[in-house]
Write a protein that binds this DNA or RNA. Structure first.
Length: 297
DNA sequence: AACTTTTTCAACCGCTCCCCA
DNA sequence: GTGGGGAGCGGTTGAAAAAGT
C-alpha cells in the first residue's frame, strides 16, 4: 500500500480545467510565486488538489512553455537523449527549453516510438529489431484491450506483476543509475529560457546511421555532434546529472570560449571507451553498474 | 451521413525521493 | 535515526478529435 492520496477527493473539481480556474491559478502564482502546492488551491480559491494545480501550471500555464509542433531538431534530440537516458522524461525535457516532460512523453509514445518501430528500431533499447514479429507490439494492441472491461480491470491489478515480468524479460541496457535531481537551482518562476533564434539543436541528421549502430552508434553520435553544447542546453545555475556531459563535450572539443571547464571527470571519449570495454566483457554486470554509478557521483 | 476505429494529449494515479522536525 | 509531509516523476487513462469505412 502506498501513501494516502495527497488530498481528499471529496468536493474537489476534477477533469479539464476551466478558463476561470486557469485565470485564478495564474493570477495567484504571478502574485505569490510557485510552491506550497498543497495549500495553494485553498489560498487561490480553487477547488482542486494541489497536485492538479502543479501539473496544470507546469504543463500548460507556465509562461515559458513553448507552443507548437516539435521541430525536427527537437525530434532528433529527443531520440538521442532517450537512447542515453531512457524514459527519464523530466531530464530530457530539461534539455528542451519550453517543452514539458508530459509533452515529450506523449510525443514519444504517440510519434517517436512508432516511427522507430517502423524504421526497424526497438524504441526501448534503440537497437535494430531483428525479429519482425516484435513490431506489432504497439499501441494498436493496447487499444483493442481498451474496450474490454474485464481485461482493463485485470490490467490494473496485474500492473505490478507485469512491470516485474517486463523488467525480467527486457534486454538489459546499462543506463546510468536513475537519480533524482532538482532540475534548476533557481525557482522555476525565475528561470528564463531565453533561447535565441540561433539556438536550434544540433545540425545532426543521421538517424539511419543510429538505427544501424544501435546504442553504441548513438553514443558515438553524441560524441561526434554538438548535442551537449553547454551554451544551448545548459541553463545557468543548473546542476543536473548531465552537467558534466556538457562540460566534457567542451573538453573533447578543446573547450569553449563561453565556459571554463575545470572538471575532474575523464573525457567523454574515455568514458565511452571504458563503457564499450565493459560491454565486451561477458557477465560483468557488477562492474558495469558500478561504472555507471561512478558517472553520477 | 452515420457509425466505428484510431489517435492525441491533458489529466490523474501511485509511487519514490527529499527535507525537516 | 526515523517518520511524516511535500514535491516530483513516470505510467496510464479516457474524452475529444480525426480518420476510416
Amino acid at each position: 500500500m502506498g501513501r494516502a492520496p495527497c488530498c481528499s477527493k471529496v468536493g474537489l473539481h476534477r477533469g479539464p480545467w476551466t478558463p476561470r480556474e486557469d485565470a485564478l491559478l495564474t493570477k495567484y502564482i504571478q502574485a505569490h510565486g510557485e510552491g506550497q502546492w498543497r495549500s495553494l488551491p485553498k489560498r487561490a480559491g480553487l477547488l482542486r488538489c494541489g497536485k492538479s494545480c502543479r501539473l496544470r501550471w507546469m504543463n500548460y500555464l507556465r509562461p515559458d512553455i513553448k507552443r507548437g509542433n516539435i521541430t525536427a531538431e527537437e525530434d532528433d534530440l529527443i531520440i538521442r537523449m532517450h537512447s542515453l537516458l531512457g524514459n527519464r522524461w523530466s531530464l530530457i525535457a530539461g534539455r528542451l527549453p519550453g517543452r514539458t516532460d508530459n509533452e515529450i512523453k506523449n510525443y514519444w509514445n504517440t510519434h517517436l516510438s512508432k516511427r522507430l518501430r517502423k524504421q526497424g528500431t526497438d524504441p526501448n533499447t534503440h537497437k535494430k529489431l531483428t525479429d519482425p514479429e516484435l513490431k506489432p507490439q504497439d499501441q494498436t494492441t493496447k487499444r483493442k484491450n481498451k474496450n474490454d472491461n474485464s481485461k482493463k480491470k485485470k490490467k490494473k491489478q496485474n500492473k505490478k506483476d507485469k512491470s516485474k515480468n517486463a523488467e525480467a524479460e527486457r534486454t538489459i541496457v546499462y543506463l546510468p543509475k536513475p537519480i533524482r535531481v532538482t532540475a534548476f537551482s533557481l525557482p522555476r518562476s525565475n528561470s528564463t529560457f531565453t533561447l535565441d533564434s540561433n539556438n536550434s539543436a544540433s545540425g545532426s541528421t543521421s538517424q539511419e546511421k543510429d538505427q544501424e549502430e544501435g546504442f553504441a552508434g548513438n553514443c558515438q553520435e553524441v560524441n561526434d555532434n554538438v548535442l551537449w553544447r553547454s551554451s544551448e542546453y545548459h541553463n545557468e545555475g543548473e546542476n543536473d546529472e548531465l552537467g558534466f556531459l556538457n562540460e566534457e563535450h567542451d573538453l573533447v572539443n578543446g573547450g569553449s570560449d563561453d565556459m571554463e571547464c575545470q572538471s575532474d571527470f575523464p573525457t567523454l571519449e574515455k568514458v565511452y571507451e571504458e563503457y564499450l570495454q565493459l560491454l565486451k566483457t561477458d557477465g560483468n554486470q557488477e562492474e558495469l553498474e558500478s561504472f555507471a554509478e561512478s558517472l553520477f557521483v
